[in-house]
């Protein structure tokens, strides 16, 4: 079986079969990265460029490691701010990089649709590593993989995403992916941080954390950017923590067997307490490990790889 998608631009509209193929294939790669020799040859001779127009530590490291463990050659390009500010357009930059004879581009960009724009003129395979507040598909895939690993399934689970949905590409990709795989998704956050008509995405919307957590299986806690207070979207971080912070006390409303997730980096004491983040129920560090396996799976499958026979 091969992927139907040619690029990974987002999870909206990606078929269940493709999602399952990526998650299943990631299992084999998870096994690879736990070996003493953590490298396999399928992308030998393939050149991947990590084009990062926004600062990123974990996503870039995770992609780079995934590429190296598949034996790809990697190039890293980081630019601060927009391409326009730099005086060269994104199109020109990408065309120049492609002239170096490369095969795949992993792009992180503050502009929504930048990865989609690349596919209009570039000949490389494009992977979206986050475009504005739009999508961050590999993050959602690693989140789903981590849920699957911990809970054995996704279908039928109740997943609550808590926090700044408005600015979150992680939330959007998770909502699309989880719904395709049959989870029930709820979101919870202050009204000023939820986008317009978000319920039309097929999620239950809450502004009261206790109600949102009632009966939930998984809680995915989003990072709260401190700038949101300066932008007037929140009266204070203190009030946010009081209303939406995940503390041990709040968790009594969850199903007895619950799972805590966070895409990182954590603002300890703001959106989640250390006690919860570091608890047995938390799979925050597993998410990081799984990120490499899932990205290996995506890179491998987009290069035409078939499901591994393990």
């Amino acid at each position: 079986m091969a992927l139907k998608i040619k690029h990974l631009l987002g999870l909206e509209g990606v078929e269940k079969k493709d999602l399952e193929l990526i998650l299943n294939t990631a299992k084999s790669f998870k096994e690879v990265i736990e070996r003493p020799v953590k490298k396999v040859p399928p992308l030998r001779g393939v050149t991947v460029v990590n084009l990062f127009y926004e600062p990123s530590t974990r996503t870039r490291l995770s992609f780079e490691l995934a590429e190296k463990r598949l034996s790809a050659d990697t190039l890293n390009f980081s630019a601060k701010g927009s391409s326009v500010a730099k005086g060269e357009s994104l199109k020109d930059t990408v065309r120049n990089i492609e002239a170096l004879k490369i095969d795949m581009i992993v792009i992180r960009h503050s502009s929504v649709g930048a990865p989609h724009y690349l596919t209009k003129f570039a000949s490389s395979t494009v992977i979206n590593a986050g475009d504005g507040a739009h999508e961050h598909p590999t993050q959602a895939l690693l989140d789903m993989y981590s849920i699957m690993e911990r809970r054995g399934k996704i279908k039928g689970l109740r997943v609550v995403i808590v926090g700044d949905i408005l600015h979150s590409r992680v939330a959007r990709s998770n909502i699309w992916g989880l719904k395709t795989l049959g989870a029930s998704v709820a979101i919870c956050g202050p009204t000023t941080l939820l986008p317009y008509e978000v319920e039309k995405m097929g999620v239950d919307v809450y502004h009261n954390l206790d109600e949102a957590l009632d009966g939930a299986d998984v809680v995915n806690v989003l990072r709260l950017q401190r700038e949101r207070q300066q932008a007037g979207l929140l009266p204070s971080l203190r009030e946010y923590t009081t209303l939406f912070g995940i503390t041990r006390d709040r968790l009594k409303f969850l199903n007895s067997n619950y799972t805590i997730m966070h895409p990182g980096p954590i603002n300890r004491g703001v959106e989640i307490t250390s006690e919860v983040a570091d608890s047995e129920s938390s799979i925050i560090l597993e998410q990081v490990t799984n990120g490499v396996a899932v990205r290996m799976s995506v890179l491998y499958l987009l290069r035409g790889g078939e499901e591994a026979k393990s």
């Binding site: 909206e12 929504v112 649709g113 475009d131 504005g132 507040a133 739009h134 999508e135 600015h167 979150s168 590409r169 959007r172 986008p195 317009y196 008509e197 978000v198 039309k200 995405m201």
Partner: peptide
């Protein structure tokens, strides 16, 4: 609108 919500714009 819902489209800007979907697109995160």
């Amino acid at each position: 609108g819902f489209i800007s919500t979907r697109l995160g714009m």
